[in-house]
Design a protein around this nucleic acid. Structure first.
Lengths: 136, 136
DNA sequence: TTTATATTTGCAACCTGGTTGCAAAACATC
DNA sequence: GATGTTTTGCAACCAGGTTGCAAATATAAA
């Protein structure tokens, strides 16, 4: 059961405390990326600084990546195998205008983008806005 | 001189106060998009709520558009002819990792992006990170 | 197993950027 | 110039994110 999650954490060099297992569980449970606020709702009795630091730890250890949804809120999602290659998420994100959930479209790579002369490409952030399958 | 700017404002149905002319001037002067904070620096003696409301007015009247630079800061840039077509900016934005300036690459359209079945496209936000021509 | 050491958590407080209510100032209209 | 409307400045607020510090918990050493 939680052994899997414990191992998951230990693999990433994160000590598997009760709190961290719960947060990881929550992140896995949802198919969309969660904000700090989403987690606060999920665990009402837990301090937000704890959740914040948990997320930071996860991010440092590359268990999750964060996404700026283009509206000011930051959301976190588990890194899939494809994320890990270079730790920069090269996939497209999708913000549903109805439910406000952000999805990692891990199977959809960012298309190549032209730039003016003398501008060099490092990475790109692509957020598509629209309506997701659940809200359709 | 300022007559041009005054007309610019009046064309968009914005009353050309001294303050607004100055803000418009500032926005035109820079080739990159400005944040509320950038404007506060530029006009140290002006209250930020005034600048804030000025930007909101400009945005409402579609004189400028705002860009979320993917790092949490919102920046504003004058709408070019190409912006105006549908009032949604369909062009790519570029955040320079050295100077932290955001550029509207108005000549570079967002490429078409594939989505999973049942996800519908409404608009997209593309922010490329890299090094701009000035910092190269 | 007990003690010493390091890590994690909760609380309170803070900071920043964005936002609003309200009164004074500036402007337009009669 | 008197009247009504718009704009501005001030103060205060709000949300999200962030930090310092002490208490609680876990780990390592004796």
């Amino acid at each position: 059961m939680n052994n899997d999650l414990e191992k998951e954490l230990e693999n990433k060099d994160i000590r598997p405390t009760a709190m961290r297992i719960l947060v990881l569980q929550a992140l896995m449970k949802h198919e969309y990326a969660m904000s700090l606020n989403d987690l606060e709702m999920e665990f009402e009795n837990v301090d937000k600084s704890t959740l914040f630091r948990t997320l930071k730890t996860f991010e440092d250890k590359k268990l999750i990546h964060c996404i700026n949804d283009g509206n000011g809120s930051v959301k976190y999602a588990i890194c899939k195998a494809t994320c890990l290659v270079e730790h920069i998420d090269k996939h497209v994100h999708f913000l549903c205008l109805k439910c406000n959930h952000t999805y990692c479209l891990t199977d959809f790579e960012i298309p190549s983008i032209n730039l003016p002369v003398d501008f060099t490409f490092e990475s790109a952030n692509v957020i598509v806005n629209g309506v997701c399958a659940n809200c359709k």
